[in-house]
Each structure stands twice: as structure tokens, then as C-alpha cells.
């Protein structure tokens, strides 16, 4: 369980979110949605401990960060380090010993090549593999599906469902509503300057409709796009 009590975050005078009260239960998948800049990643960074905040964030297991797997939108990789060495580094940091890492290479990555030479999708797969080997209880997955191929998306969906069945607490953000609809037990909508909206599966369709209505289609006409003769 992760619980947030009156959590607020400001950057100078800019209020990102205010007085958030949330509970993320074990064995649940919690979707976080919102427009770009609504504060999804900032919320994740606050929970992970990368950002300071006002209010309280508590967890069943402490310190939270040592039981948390955090998949960033664009995972950080180090130069001149192979995929295998990246995994070994994270295992070493968390004091976990796994003898045959290669047998857990679920995405068939070329682990002996430099990770910085991987494609965008492969980098994400590497970060997911490493995160899953760290024996975490809580997971923050920030845009986990972006950059992945269709097969890997399907595999990741199954992995997330397995994590739920193992009583893990999962926080997930995605810009693909279909993925969230399929996976999440609850969706929280973050909107700038508005209170948090919590939506349960029966109301997902109306949430989708609300989000569609907020699209500013008329703004497309302001672009200087011209008809092509050829």
C-alpha cells in the first residue's frame, strides 16, 4: 500500500498539484492520466523520492524507494556499459545476487552489446528487465508501452497482470487509453488547476468522452499547412 495525504507540489509559484489524497492498494493497477504537463511524471518523481513535496507519502514497506521499481519514460543509460553490466550494476546497488542473468532475458536483448547503442525500444526493454529482477513490491511505470513493438507490448501487458496477481502495487501512466482501459482497476485523472478525478471501470467510457471533448481541434487550422501539388 502507498498512501498520499495532502500531497502538493510547486515549482516556484507554479502549482503542479495540490492536496492530493490517494491510496494505491496491493494487487491493484492504478492508472494516472492527464495532458502533457499535468504533473504525472512529477507525481511519480515525488513518490519515488526524486522531488521534494508538501504533505505525507507513506508505504507499508520502508524506505519506499528500496522496494520500488521505477521505469522512466526515457530510461537513463551509461556510456560504454553493456546491457548485462547495466543489469549487474542495478543488482549490485540493491545488493541482490542473481547468478545467471541471461536466463531472465525475456526480451532476447543482445546483453553483451553497449546499451547506448540499443534502439529506443530495446533501451526500454532493458530497463524493464532490470526493474523486474530487483524483487520490488511497488512499481511506477511511466509510459511503459511507448517505443515497444506490438509483441513486446503484449508481453508487457501480461507481465503487469502477473505483477497484480502477485499482490504488487502498480502505478501506470500511458497516453494510449486502450491499454489503460484494459489493465487498470482505477484511473486517476490529473488536470491542471482542477481537483483529481478518480474513475472506476464502469465510468471509463464517459472519461474517454470527456477527454475527447477537451481536444482543441480548431487549433489545427492555425497551422500554415499548404496543399501539395504533386
Amino acid at each position: 500500500m502507498i498512501s498520499l495525504e495532502n500531497v502538493s507540489k510547486k515549482f516556484g509559484k507554479n502549482i503542479v498539484f495540490e492536496n492530493l489524497n490517494l491510496q494505491f492498494k496491493p494487487g491493484s493497477i492504478n492508472g494516472i492520466v492527464g495532458e502533457n504537463g499535468a504533473g504525472k511524471t512529477t507525481l511519480f518523481r515525488c513518490i519515488a523520492g526524486f522531488e521534494s513535496y508538501e504533505g505525507r507519502i507513506d508505504s507499508h514497506k520502508n524506505p519506499l524507494k528500496n522496494h520500488l521499481g521505477y521505469l522512466m519514460t526515457n530510461p537513463y543509460l551509461l556510456e560504454k556499459i553493456t546491457g548485462l553490466e547495466y543489469i549487474e550494476l542495478l543488482l549490485y546497488a540493491r545488493e541482490i545476487s542473481i547468478k545467471n542473468i541471461a536466463q531472465h532475458n525475456i526480451f532476447d536483448l543482445p546483453l553483451k552489446e553497449y546499451a547506448t547503442n540499443y534502439s529506443t525500444g530495446m533501451k526500454k526493454k532493458l530497463a524493464i528487465t532490470a526493474m523486474l529482477l530487483l524483487n520490488n513490491d511497488y512499481f511506477i511505470l511511466d509510459e511503459p508501452f511507448s517505443g515497444l513493438d506490438i509483441q513486446s507490448n503484449m508481453l508487457l501487458t501480461e507481465i503487469i497482470q502477473k505483477l497484480r496477481s502477485l499482490n504488487k502495487t502498480i502505478l501506470l501512466s500511458s497516453h494510449i487509453f486502450g491499454g489503460l482501459e484494459q489493465l487498470c482497476d482505477v484511473i486517476h485523472l490529473l488536470q491542471k488547476g482542477k481537483p483529481l478525478q478518480t474513475v472506476l471501470p464502469p465510468q471509463y467510457d464517459s472519461l474517454k468522452e470527456t477527454m475527447m471533448q477537451s481536444i482543441h481541434r480548431t487549433k489545427i487550422d492555425t497551422l500554415p499547412l499548404k496543399y501539395s501539388d504533386s
Binding site: 551509461l78 556499459i81 553490466e85 550494476l89 549490485y92 553497449y114
Partner: peptide, 15 residues
């Protein structure tokens, strides 16, 4: 990928 004495600990020396 060049050989290295340093493996995972610490990454500064490995890289």
C-alpha cells in the same frame, strides 16, 4: 565491447 577488469563495480571505472 572492450574487455575490462572492473565489471559492474564501480561503473565510473568500467566506462
Amino acid at each position: 565491447v572492450g574487455p575490462s577488469f572492473f565489471r559492474k563495480r564501480p561503473f565510473e571505472f568500467l566506462a
